[in-house]
Amino acid sequence: MEIQNKDVWVFIEQRNGKPADVSFELLSKGRKLADSLKSSLKAILLGHNIKPIAEETFKYGAEEAIIVDNQQLAYYRTMPYSRILNDLVEKYKPRVMLYGATVIGRDLAPRVASHTKSGLTADCTDLQISNVKYIKKEFKDLLLQIRPAFGGNIIATIISPDVHTQMATVREGVMRIETVGKPAKGKITEVPYVHEKFDDVVKIIEQHRKENKVNLKAAPIIVSGGYGLGSKENFELVKELAHTIGGEVAGTRAAVDAGFISSDRQVGQTGVTVRPKLYIACGISGAIQHRAGMQESNKIIAINSDPDAPIFGVAHYGIVGDAMQIIPMFINVFKQKLR
Protein backbone atom coordinates (compact mmCIF):
# COMPACT_ATOMS: atom_id res chain seq x y z
CA MET A 1 0.00 0.00 0.00
CA GLU A 2 1.42 3.35 -1.03
CA ILE A 3 0.88 5.68 1.87
CA GLN A 4 0.12 9.19 0.68
CA ASN A 5 -1.21 11.22 3.53
CA LYS A 6 0.58 10.77 6.84
CA ASP A 7 -1.17 13.48 8.80
CA VAL A 8 -2.07 13.11 12.44
CA TRP A 9 -5.53 14.35 13.38
CA VAL A 10 -6.88 15.07 16.81
CA PHE A 11 -10.60 15.46 17.37
CA ILE A 12 -10.98 18.52 19.60
CA GLU A 13 -13.85 18.06 21.97
CA GLN A 14 -15.72 21.09 23.23
CA ARG A 15 -18.53 21.01 25.71
CA ASN A 16 -20.72 24.09 25.75
CA GLY A 17 -17.94 26.04 24.06
CA LYS A 18 -15.18 24.92 26.43
CA PRO A 19 -12.40 22.72 25.05
CA ALA A 20 -11.74 19.48 26.94
CA ASP A 21 -8.29 19.13 28.54
CA VAL A 22 -7.88 15.72 27.00
CA SER A 23 -7.93 17.25 23.52
CA PHE A 24 -4.90 19.40 24.28
CA GLU A 25 -3.17 16.42 25.89
CA LEU A 26 -3.74 14.51 22.66
CA LEU A 27 -2.39 17.39 20.57
CA SER A 28 0.77 17.30 22.68
CA LYS A 29 1.17 13.59 21.96
CA GLY A 30 0.04 14.04 18.36
CA ARG A 31 2.81 16.61 17.85
CA LYS A 32 5.42 13.95 18.66
CA LEU A 33 3.74 11.37 16.45
CA ALA A 34 3.60 13.83 13.56
CA ASP A 35 7.29 14.61 14.04
CA SER A 36 8.13 10.90 13.86
CA LEU A 37 6.04 10.59 10.72
CA LYS A 38 7.47 13.82 9.28
CA SER A 39 3.93 14.92 8.68
CA SER A 40 1.66 17.58 10.04
CA LEU A 41 -0.69 17.77 12.99
CA LYS A 42 -4.25 18.93 12.47
CA ALA A 43 -6.97 19.79 14.93
CA ILE A 44 -10.51 18.85 13.91
CA LEU A 45 -13.11 20.96 15.60
CA LEU A 46 -16.89 21.08 15.32
CA GLY A 47 -19.16 23.50 17.15
CA HIS A 48 -20.39 27.06 17.13
CA ASN A 49 -18.24 30.20 17.53
CA ILE A 50 -15.20 28.02 17.96
CA LYS A 51 -12.49 30.12 16.31
CA PRO A 52 -10.89 30.95 19.71
CA ILE A 53 -10.54 27.24 20.45
CA ALA A 54 -9.05 26.71 17.00
CA GLU A 55 -6.45 29.39 17.75
CA GLU A 56 -5.64 27.71 21.04
CA THR A 57 -4.78 24.40 19.36
CA PHE A 58 -1.73 25.98 17.71
CA LYS A 59 -0.15 26.44 21.14
CA TYR A 60 -0.07 22.67 21.50
CA GLY A 61 1.50 22.07 18.12
CA ALA A 62 -1.32 21.94 15.61
CA GLU A 63 -0.38 23.46 12.25
CA GLU A 64 -3.89 23.59 10.91
CA ALA A 65 -7.35 23.54 12.39
CA ILE A 66 -10.14 22.19 10.22
CA ILE A 67 -13.34 23.60 11.64
CA VAL A 68 -17.03 23.27 10.94
CA ASP A 69 -18.78 26.15 12.63
CA ASN A 70 -22.55 26.20 12.75
CA GLN A 71 -25.21 26.80 15.31
CA GLN A 72 -26.62 23.35 14.73
CA LEU A 73 -23.32 21.91 15.92
CA ALA A 74 -23.18 23.90 19.15
CA TYR A 75 -23.98 20.78 21.17
CA TYR A 76 -22.56 17.37 20.39
CA ARG A 77 -25.00 15.09 18.60
CA THR A 78 -23.93 11.71 17.25
CA MET A 79 -25.49 11.96 13.84
CA PRO A 80 -24.20 15.23 12.40
CA TYR A 81 -20.83 14.93 14.12
CA SER A 82 -20.16 11.40 12.88
CA ARG A 83 -21.40 12.19 9.38
CA ILE A 84 -19.12 15.21 9.08
CA LEU A 85 -16.11 13.30 10.40
CA ASN A 86 -16.83 10.41 8.03
CA ASP A 87 -16.75 12.82 5.10
CA LEU A 88 -13.57 14.51 6.28
CA VAL A 89 -11.75 11.23 6.94
CA GLU A 90 -12.79 9.85 3.57
CA LYS A 91 -11.74 12.98 1.79
CA TYR A 92 -8.38 13.69 3.45
CA LYS A 93 -7.45 10.21 4.69
CA PRO A 94 -5.40 11.04 7.80
CA ARG A 95 -2.91 8.38 8.85
CA VAL A 96 -3.65 8.68 12.58
CA MET A 97 -6.73 9.99 14.33
CA LEU A 98 -7.02 10.41 18.11
CA TYR A 99 -10.04 11.03 20.33
CA GLY A 100 -10.43 11.49 24.07
CA ALA A 101 -12.02 8.43 25.71
CA THR A 102 -14.84 10.59 27.05
CA VAL A 103 -18.59 10.05 26.82
CA ILE A 104 -18.51 11.97 23.53
CA GLY A 105 -15.33 10.38 22.17
CA ARG A 106 -16.54 6.88 22.97
CA ASP A 107 -19.84 7.59 21.21
CA LEU A 108 -18.26 9.16 18.16
CA ALA A 109 -15.02 7.27 17.45
CA PRO A 110 -16.56 3.80 16.95
CA ARG A 111 -19.22 5.16 14.65
CA VAL A 112 -16.63 6.90 12.47
CA ALA A 113 -14.27 3.91 12.56
CA SER A 114 -17.11 1.64 11.47
CA HIS A 115 -18.10 3.83 8.56
CA THR A 116 -14.56 4.38 7.32
CA LYS A 117 -13.49 0.81 8.17
CA SER A 118 -10.60 2.10 10.24
CA GLY A 119 -8.90 0.27 13.06
CA LEU A 120 -9.80 1.62 16.50
CA THR A 121 -8.20 0.79 19.84
CA ALA A 122 -9.76 1.99 23.08
CA ASP A 123 -8.06 3.38 26.16
CA CYS A 124 -4.47 3.34 24.99
CA THR A 125 -1.90 4.10 27.67
CA ASP A 126 0.89 4.79 25.19
CA LEU A 127 1.23 5.52 21.48
CA GLN A 128 4.38 5.27 19.38
CA ILE A 129 5.41 5.23 15.74
CA SER A 130 7.58 2.33 14.66
CA ASN A 131 8.48 0.08 11.77
CA VAL A 132 6.89 -3.30 12.25
CA LYS A 133 7.41 -6.79 10.93
CA TYR A 134 4.13 -8.65 11.11
CA ILE A 135 3.52 -12.08 9.58
CA LYS A 136 6.59 -11.82 7.36
CA LYS A 137 5.63 -8.43 6.00
CA GLU A 138 7.41 -5.16 6.71
CA PHE A 139 5.34 -2.12 7.54
CA LYS A 140 6.85 1.31 7.78
CA ASP A 141 5.83 3.83 10.42
CA LEU A 142 2.84 2.11 12.00
CA LEU A 143 1.05 3.44 15.05
CA LEU A 144 1.71 1.18 18.02
CA GLN A 145 -1.38 1.27 20.22
CA ILE A 146 -0.38 0.07 23.63
CA ARG A 147 -2.82 -0.92 26.38
CA PRO A 148 -3.15 -3.40 29.21
CA ALA A 149 -5.34 -6.39 28.41
CA PHE A 150 -6.83 -9.42 30.06
CA GLY A 151 -7.28 -8.32 33.59
CA GLY A 152 -3.95 -6.56 33.37
CA ASN A 153 -1.85 -9.68 33.19
CA ILE A 154 -0.51 -8.60 29.85
CA ILE A 155 0.36 -5.46 27.96
CA ALA A 156 -0.83 -5.68 24.38
CA THR A 157 0.52 -3.74 21.44
CA ILE A 158 -2.16 -3.38 18.81
CA ILE A 159 -1.52 -2.41 15.19
CA SER A 160 -3.80 -1.73 12.24
CA PRO A 161 -1.45 -2.66 9.40
CA ASP A 162 -3.86 -3.01 6.49
CA VAL A 163 -6.01 0.07 6.75
CA HIS A 164 -5.12 3.64 6.01
CA THR A 165 -6.44 5.40 9.08
CA GLN A 166 -5.35 4.17 12.49
CA MET A 167 -7.62 5.43 15.25
CA ALA A 168 -7.25 5.34 19.02
CA THR A 169 -8.93 6.73 22.09
CA VAL A 170 -7.01 7.84 25.18
CA ARG A 171 -8.28 8.69 28.66
CA GLU A 172 -7.97 12.10 30.16
CA GLY A 173 -4.68 12.68 31.93
CA VAL A 174 -2.75 9.84 30.32
CA MET A 175 -0.75 12.04 27.97
CA ARG A 176 1.15 14.99 29.34
CA ILE A 177 -0.01 18.38 28.20
CA GLU A 178 2.81 20.42 26.65
CA THR A 179 2.87 23.68 24.76
CA VAL A 180 5.34 24.09 21.93
CA GLY A 181 8.12 26.67 22.15
CA LYS A 182 7.41 28.38 18.88
CA PRO A 183 3.87 27.70 17.74
CA ALA A 184 3.40 27.53 13.98
CA LYS A 185 1.40 30.32 12.46
CA GLY A 186 -1.56 28.06 12.21
CA LYS A 187 -4.05 27.98 9.42
CA ILE A 188 -7.78 27.75 10.01
CA THR A 189 -9.66 25.96 7.28
CA GLU A 190 -13.38 26.31 7.45
CA VAL A 191 -15.56 23.58 5.98
CA PRO A 192 -19.20 24.58 5.48
CA TYR A 193 -21.93 22.69 7.30
CA VAL A 194 -24.54 21.28 4.98
CA HIS A 195 -27.61 20.14 6.84
CA GLU A 196 -29.00 16.67 6.23
CA LYS A 197 -32.32 15.38 7.42
CA PHE A 198 -30.86 12.35 9.18
CA ASP A 199 -28.86 14.72 11.40
CA ASP A 200 -31.98 15.42 13.40
CA VAL A 201 -33.25 11.92 14.20
CA VAL A 202 -32.01 12.46 17.73
CA LYS A 203 -32.88 15.74 19.43
CA ILE A 204 -31.53 17.15 22.65
CA ILE A 205 -34.49 18.05 24.84
CA GLU A 206 -32.54 19.08 27.91
CA GLN A 207 -28.96 19.15 29.05
CA HIS A 208 -27.70 19.49 32.59
CA ARG A 209 -24.00 19.68 33.14
CA LYS A 210 -22.03 20.88 36.12
CA GLU A 211 -18.46 21.59 35.21
CA ASN A 212 -17.14 21.85 38.74
CA LYS A 213 -16.34 18.17 38.85
CA VAL A 214 -13.58 16.84 41.00
CA ASN A 215 -10.22 17.71 39.59
CA LEU A 216 -8.00 14.90 40.77
CA LYS A 217 -5.39 15.75 38.20
CA ALA A 218 -4.61 19.04 39.91
CA ALA A 219 -4.44 17.69 43.47
CA PRO A 220 -0.95 17.70 45.00
CA ILE A 221 -1.89 14.98 47.51
CA ILE A 222 -4.16 12.02 46.84
CA VAL A 223 -5.24 9.37 49.32
CA SER A 224 -6.63 6.40 47.48
CA GLY A 225 -8.46 3.37 48.79
CA GLY A 226 -9.08 -0.07 47.37
CA TYR A 227 -11.27 -3.09 47.83
CA GLY A 228 -9.08 -4.11 50.75
CA LEU A 229 -10.85 -1.55 52.93
CA GLY A 230 -13.71 -3.99 53.00
CA SER A 231 -16.69 -1.69 53.45
CA LYS A 232 -18.04 1.75 52.81
CA GLU A 233 -17.83 2.52 56.52
CA ASN A 234 -14.16 1.58 56.63
CA PHE A 235 -13.57 3.67 53.54
CA GLU A 236 -14.49 6.73 55.62
CA LEU A 237 -11.03 6.39 57.16
CA VAL A 238 -9.46 7.04 53.77
CA LYS A 239 -11.51 10.21 53.51
CA GLU A 240 -10.52 11.22 57.00
CA LEU A 241 -6.84 10.75 56.22
CA ALA A 242 -7.21 12.80 53.03
CA HIS A 243 -8.97 15.50 54.96
CA THR A 244 -6.33 15.53 57.68
CA ILE A 245 -3.38 15.94 55.36
CA GLY A 246 -5.16 18.19 52.86
CA GLY A 247 -5.54 15.76 49.98
CA GLU A 248 -8.21 14.55 47.60
CA VAL A 249 -9.83 11.12 47.93
CA ALA A 250 -9.62 8.57 45.15
CA GLY A 251 -10.06 4.85 44.64
CA THR A 252 -9.62 1.79 42.47
CA ARG A 253 -12.22 0.42 40.15
CA ALA A 254 -12.91 -2.37 42.60
CA ALA A 255 -13.65 0.30 45.22
CA VAL A 256 -15.91 2.13 42.78
CA ASP A 257 -17.70 -1.09 41.82
CA ALA A 258 -18.23 -1.91 45.48
CA GLY A 259 -19.84 1.50 45.96
CA PHE A 260 -17.16 2.80 48.34
CA ILE A 261 -16.57 5.90 46.22
CA SER A 262 -17.98 7.63 43.14
CA SER A 263 -16.70 6.77 39.69
CA ASP A 264 -15.38 10.25 38.92
CA ARG A 265 -12.70 9.55 41.50
CA GLN A 266 -11.43 6.34 39.93
CA VAL A 267 -7.72 6.31 39.20
CA GLY A 268 -6.33 4.13 36.43
CA GLN A 269 -6.51 3.11 32.83
CA THR A 270 -10.26 3.60 32.66
CA GLY A 271 -10.32 6.38 35.19
CA VAL A 272 -8.10 9.38 35.65
CA THR A 273 -4.32 9.42 35.42
CA VAL A 274 -2.70 11.43 38.19
CA ARG A 275 0.81 12.60 39.03
CA PRO A 276 0.56 14.17 42.50
CA LYS A 277 3.38 15.02 44.86
CA LEU A 278 2.14 12.29 47.18
CA TYR A 279 -0.08 9.27 46.52
CA ILE A 280 -1.08 7.07 49.42
CA ALA A 281 -2.51 3.70 48.34
CA CYS A 282 -4.51 1.95 51.07
CA GLY A 283 -5.71 -1.63 50.58
CA ILE A 284 -4.87 -1.52 46.89
CA SER A 285 -3.31 -4.56 45.22
CA GLY A 286 -1.69 -2.58 42.41
CA ALA A 287 -3.19 -4.12 39.30
CA ILE A 288 -1.62 -2.77 36.15
CA GLN A 289 -4.75 -0.84 35.19
CA HIS A 290 -4.50 0.97 38.48
CA ARG A 291 -0.74 1.50 38.31
CA ALA A 292 -1.15 2.96 34.82
CA GLY A 293 -2.96 5.85 36.46
CA MET A 294 -0.65 6.61 39.39
CA GLN A 295 2.83 5.19 38.98
CA GLU A 296 4.31 8.51 37.90
CA SER A 297 3.40 10.13 41.18
CA ASN A 298 6.33 11.86 42.82
CA LYS A 299 6.13 9.82 46.05
CA ILE A 300 4.01 6.74 46.64
CA ILE A 301 3.19 5.20 50.00
CA ALA A 302 1.59 1.76 49.92
CA ILE A 303 -0.31 0.29 52.84
CA ASN A 304 -1.21 -3.34 52.32
CA SER A 305 -1.48 -6.43 54.51
CA ASP A 306 0.06 -8.63 51.82
CA PRO A 307 3.84 -8.09 51.62
CA ASP A 308 3.81 -9.50 48.07
CA ALA A 309 1.16 -7.13 46.73
CA PRO A 310 2.30 -5.68 43.37
CA ILE A 311 1.63 -2.15 44.61
CA PHE A 312 4.91 -2.31 46.56
CA GLY A 313 6.69 -2.62 43.21
CA VAL A 314 5.92 1.00 42.40
CA ALA A 315 5.96 2.37 45.94
CA HIS A 316 8.67 4.49 47.52
CA TYR A 317 7.52 3.64 51.02
CA GLY A 318 5.82 0.40 51.97
CA ILE A 319 3.89 -0.29 55.16
CA VAL A 320 2.85 -3.91 55.58
CA GLY A 321 -0.15 -4.21 57.84
CA ASP A 322 -3.85 -3.76 58.37
CA ALA A 323 -5.01 -0.50 56.85
CA MET A 324 -7.67 -0.25 59.54
CA GLN A 325 -4.95 0.12 62.14
CA ILE A 326 -2.35 1.99 60.13
CA ILE A 327 -4.56 4.77 58.79
CA PRO A 328 -5.76 5.91 62.25
CA MET A 329 -2.15 5.71 63.46
CA PHE A 330 -1.06 7.90 60.54
CA ILE A 331 -3.80 10.42 61.30
CA ASN A 332 -2.93 10.60 64.99
CA VAL A 333 0.81 10.87 64.53
CA PHE A 334 0.35 13.54 61.86
CA LYS A 335 -1.94 15.60 64.08
CA GLN A 336 0.57 15.38 66.94
CA LYS A 337 3.42 16.54 64.70
CA LEU A 338 1.49 19.58 63.58
CA ARG A 339 0.56 20.59 67.05
Binding site: S118, V132, Q145, I155, I159, I288, I319, N332
Partner: peptide, 28 residues
Protein backbone atom coordinates in the same frame (compact mmCIF):
# COMPACT_ATOMS: atom_id res chain seq x y z
CA UNK B 1 -8.30 -4.11 11.06
CA UNK B 2 -6.74 -4.22 14.52
CA UNK B 3 -4.26 -7.01 15.19
CA UNK B 4 -2.40 -7.96 18.30
CA UNK B 5 1.20 -7.37 17.38
CA UNK B 6 2.82 -8.19 20.67
CA UNK B 7 1.87 -9.25 24.14
CA UNK B 8 4.18 -8.96 27.06
CA UNK B 9 3.43 -10.38 30.41
CA UNK B 10 3.68 -7.80 33.05
CA UNK B 11 6.94 -8.09 34.88
CA UNK B 12 7.10 -6.06 37.99
CA UNK B 13 10.24 -4.08 38.41
CA UNK B 14 12.02 -5.22 41.53
CA UNK B 15 10.74 -3.17 44.38
CA UNK B 16 13.14 -0.63 45.76
CA UNK B 17 10.78 0.81 48.29
CA UNK B 18 11.75 1.68 51.77
CA UNK B 19 10.07 -0.52 54.35
CA UNK B 20 8.29 1.47 57.01
CA UNK B 21 7.52 -0.46 60.21
CA UNK B 22 3.79 -0.43 61.02
CA UNK B 23 4.39 1.33 64.30
CA UNK B 24 3.94 4.84 65.68
CA UNK B 25 7.70 5.38 65.48
CA UNK B 26 7.96 4.08 61.94
CA UNK B 27 5.12 6.20 60.70
CA UNK B 28 6.40 9.17 62.69
Amino acid sequence: PTKVYKVESVVLAGSHHQIVPPTKEGIG
